[in-house]
């Protein structure tokens, strides 16, 4: 296994004491595999990604185990993490405008990891950066390398970010909402580019997104997160066809589908995602969930394992196939 995460927890220290943002995060990722992490705002999906990169905010405390290439990353010293970051593990951020330094040329920024991790000279690295920009199919890579970030369009900037991420041939790329700020047509091109790069280099991908449909088309396996918990995980097509967690099912039915008839009532999920301090003793989805029974409010949901890589965190996971949910509200 390239990456094995077990019992990952992230606590944020604040005025009101510690808040658990991520808890019990257990998942694994193999060479060349792509894992989708889906969740709404506050689900802890971004914090999970940052924890893998060792980039959690200063007031966060990470516990549990993150093993990458057989090496334990939690508790690793910052210097050791620096050597990994941008080399073995790379990250692509949502907003390339803020992730790129506006004052430096794009080419120099793409070259930066090569200078840091490969000991290349600035000139050699810059030439390599031009090749990388060409590799991510930026039109006129020479010009793009010499340009400043503001001169590129959103899609071009994201391509530059990707070029920067793949420069050192990382084994794992973490992409946090890489296409959320982009138009759908550009999104499709960027996702296809990432697919292609993955196929050719065998790197593993962790794609964090709020959109289950994006993950559906571009990942082998999926993790669905809610309020810091992994509610369900498994192979994408199995999870989509036969969700074993009411939250996943609700997400599938809440989104209008292209081609569905107009005005058809969408399944609604009452209320809104809980804020961390509102989560009580039981299941965080209790109350919003149609299948809520007494135990859901009092006891944390158990992990129910259906097969080696299929898991649902729900008191009623085993009944899911036979239970029909109310439609509409």
């Amino acid at each position: 296994m390239l990456l094995e995460v077990s019992n990952l927890a992230v606590d944020l220290m604040g005025t009101a004491g510690a808040q658990r943002i991520v808890s019990g995060g257990t998942f694994a990722l193999d060479e060349g595999e792509s894992l989708g992490v889906v969740g709404e705002s506050g689900s802890g999906k971004t914090m999970t990604a940052l924890a893998l990169m060792g980039l959690t905010p200063e007031n966060a405390r990470v516990s549990g185990s993150i093993r990458f290439e057989g090496r334990e990353l939690t508790g690793l010293r910052e210097e050791a993490m620096l050597a990994l970051r941008g080399d073995r593990i790379a990250m692509i951020f949502q907003e390339p405008m803020t992730a790129l330094n506006p004052l430096h040329r794009v080419g120099a920024q793409v070259a930066e990891p090569l200078v840091l991790h490969r000991g290349m000279t600035r000139e050699a690295a810059f030439d390599r950066a031009v090749q990388l920009l060409d590799h991510v199919r930026l039109a006129d890579p020479e010009r793009a390398a010499r340009a400043y970030p503001f001169a590129l369009s959103g899609g071009e900037r994201q391509r530059a970010m990707i070029a920067m991420a793949i420069g050192c041939s990382p084994r794992l790329v973490i992409a946090d909402e890489p296409t959320t700020a982009l138009d759908v047509t550009v999104q499709a091109r960027i996702l296809a580019l990432i697919d292609g790069l993955r196929a050719e280099s065998g790197m593993a991908l962790m794609l964090v997104s709020h959109d289950l449909a994006v993950v559906a088309g571009h990942c082998d396996r999926v993790i669905v997160m809610y309020a810091g918990l992994i509610m369900e995980s498994g192979p994408v097509e199995v999870v989509l066809r036969e969700p074993k967690n009411p939250y996943t099912r609700a997400l599938l039915e809440a989104r209008p589908q292209p081609g569905a008839s107009r005005g058809r009532r969408l399944r609604t999920i009452p209320g809104s995602p809980p804020i961390h301090h509102e989560i009580g003793a039981g299941c965080p989805f209790a109350g919003r969930c149609d299948l809520t029974i007494d135990i859901c409010r009092t006891t944390p949901p158990p992990e129910v394992r259906f097969s080696a890589d299929r898991l649902s965190r729900c008191h009623r996971a085993r009944e899911m196939g036979s239970l029909n949910m109310r439609t509409g509200a």
């Binding site: 759908v184 047509t185 996702l191 697919d195 088309g217 571009h218 989509l240």
Partner: peptide, 9 residues
């Protein structure tokens, strides 16, 4: 380009 559940974009 629109993401759907039933096929990749």
């Amino acid at each position: 380009a629109t993401p759907r559940f039933d096929r990749p974009t």
